[in-house]
């Protein structure tokens, strides 16, 4: 096995496409090193992208934010302007693991690990975020929704990796929120996750919304029926009931050591409702 730590994206792309055997990207390493220790992954090459300065940046771009693939959760949490624009995305990233994990874990790593329960992914999908994928054939932008394809699997081609994630411009009276359910107060994997991003008009009527769920299907779910339940409403009780119902209906979870089908289905609606109310308050609340 070898360890390489290129200092530019081009070098990394070159190294990745020319590596023989299995090559894994090492960003925060909080999933990969655990999987290697458990013998689940045995890469021939580890490509550490943390020495690439460009991937450490949080950059304002077209009113939105571009977040490099090597930016840790802690760094995102300390970026006041980013937190102000996308509190739901940042809180989702900051829920991943302990303080110690926050010092290492990256949002791009969370995305590419492709766990159905990844905390940041529903928030990114609700935010309509776009991943910038680089590879031997150049770069392409892909909706975050389309990166994971199933548990542990992504749509990335051989030789490709996610270099950054773009959060679009945040409009006025818009906000997002993410909630997850875990049995303890910290240190667990989401049993259910729900993210809501919405925009209110001056009267408090919801004009746009995206609702995404985690841990209730093989990959993140964008629940358009749930968004439709909110749009045009004042986020009053009937709208929230409809939202919760749509989320529970969309959820197609499995039963496993972390939760039952019934529990996940039920709580998906509960969390979506609560996240909506938080996003509403953040967006300026009812008129």
């Amino acid at each position: 096995m070898q360890y390489i730590s290129p200092t530019t994206v081009d070098e990394a792309v070159h190294a990745l496409s020319s590596a023989t055997g299995a090559c894994r990207i090492l960003a925060g390493g909080t999933d990969l090193l655990v999987q290697m220790r458990a013998g689940m992954k045995r890469p021939d090459t580890l490509l550490d992208i943390k020495r690439i300065d460009a991937l450490h940046q949080i950059t304002a771009e077209d009113g939105g934010w571009r977040i490099g693939a090597a930016v840790s959760g802690a760094e995102m949490g300390e970026h006041a302007a980013l937190v102000s624009d996308w509190p739901g995305v940042v809180e989702a990233v900051n829920l991943i693991g302990s303080t110690q994990i926050q010092g290492r874990a990256t949002m791009a790593g969370n995305l590419c690990n492709a766990s159905p329960a990844a905390d940041s992914v529903p928030a990114l999908v609700a935010a309509n975020a776009v991943a910038r994928v680089v590879g031997p054939h150049g770069q392409r932008d892909v909706a975050v929704l389309d990166i994971p394809s199933g548990p542990g699997k992504t749509t990335l081609e051989p030789g490709e990796f996610v270099a950054s994630t773009y959060l679009p411009a945040r409009g006025a009276r818009s906000a997002d929120a993410y909630l997850r359910f875990i049995p303890r107060t910290e240190m667990d994997i989401a049993v259910v996750g729900a993210a809501v991003s919405l925009t209110l008009d001056a009267d408090g009527i919801c004009t746009a919304a995206r609702v995404a769920l985690g841990a209730v299907a093989p990959k993140v779910l964008l629940v358009e029926a749930a968004a439709r339940a909110l749009i045009g409403s004042r986020l009053d009780a009937p709208a929230l009931d409809a939202l919760a119902e749509a989320c529970s209906a969309a959820a197609k979870p499995i039963a496993d050591k972390r939760g039952t089908v019934e529990f996940r289905t039920q709580v998906a609606g509960v969390l979506a409702r609560r996240a909506t109310l938080i996003a509403q308050t953040r967006a300026g609340g009812p008129a």
Binding site: Y3, G28, L33, A74
Partner: peptide
């Protein structure tokens, strides 16, 4: 737990090479 460049991390999730 150790500090790596002033950040709190788990040393079991950092490679020596890093």
């Amino acid at each position: 737990s150790v500090m790596l460049d002033g950040r709190l991390v788990c040393a079991c999730l950092v490679l020596g090479a890093e």
